[in-house]
Amino acid sequence: MKKDIFKVAGKTLKSRLIVGTGKYRNFLETAKAIKASGADMVTVAVRRVNILDKKKPILTDYLNPKKIILLPNTAGCFNSDEALRTLRLAREMGGWKLVKLEVLGDKKTLYPNMIETIKSTQILAREGFKVMVYCTDDPLLAKELENNGASAIMPLASPIGSGLGIQNKVNISLIIKQSKVPVIVDAGIGTASDATIAMELGCDGVLVNSAIAKAKKPILMAKAFKNAVVSGRNSYLAGRMIKSHLALASSPFKGLI
């Protein structure tokens, strides 16, 4: 069997699970959960340094960028200018060209503003960034992103942090079928089985934050997600049986006493 390799924006990843680093109780828990998840790529946000407390530890004291790929995101940006500013700063910080773009459009749902998202994708791609793009699950808009240079399409399963799981499997499937770049379900995953479902649909990867960080035992949940993604991928590669509306006996009738 051909080796199943996950390559995104020129980087080969061992795990198809990408995890976020937000909402944990502390940095130690963040680091332990990441380790348990087996992820080799994690998302990070860009914010002001706290100048009032010089001694406070910071996230990068706990994450070694040599061992783990940091994927800077634009969470909290509501227009193209803010997102571009954030990612250009991130590039200066670490020399990263691989970034996650998310331009939000609504404070209640944190739904992406796709017009600004497409605009930003185009500019960033021209500047040489490799852009993984958070987007709605609309196949036409996903295609538009790909045509504008997105390195990965990241449709939401459901609103960010909602834990509602995949709401529109049909759309996610359509996006997977048409895309030539990796499709990674991002946002709304609530529990390990949601990740398995995404992988069984044929997603290339899954991005999870709240479902792990907000679990009662985040480190155990991180492990659950690691296995869920592997199971879902294997199940997809194995190819599921055909569904039937009637029973088909598992034991032969021949030789029945």
Binding site: G20, T21, G22, K23, Y24, F27, T30, T43, V44, A45, V46, R47, R48, V49, I51, I58, L59, T60, L70, P72, N73, A75, L89, A90, M93, I160, G161, A187, L207, N209, S210
Partner: peptide
């Protein structure tokens, strides 16, 4: 002046 760094995020 703005000095920024990476913090936890999804």
């Amino acid at each position: 002046i703005e000095i920024v760094h990476f913090i936890g995020g999804g």
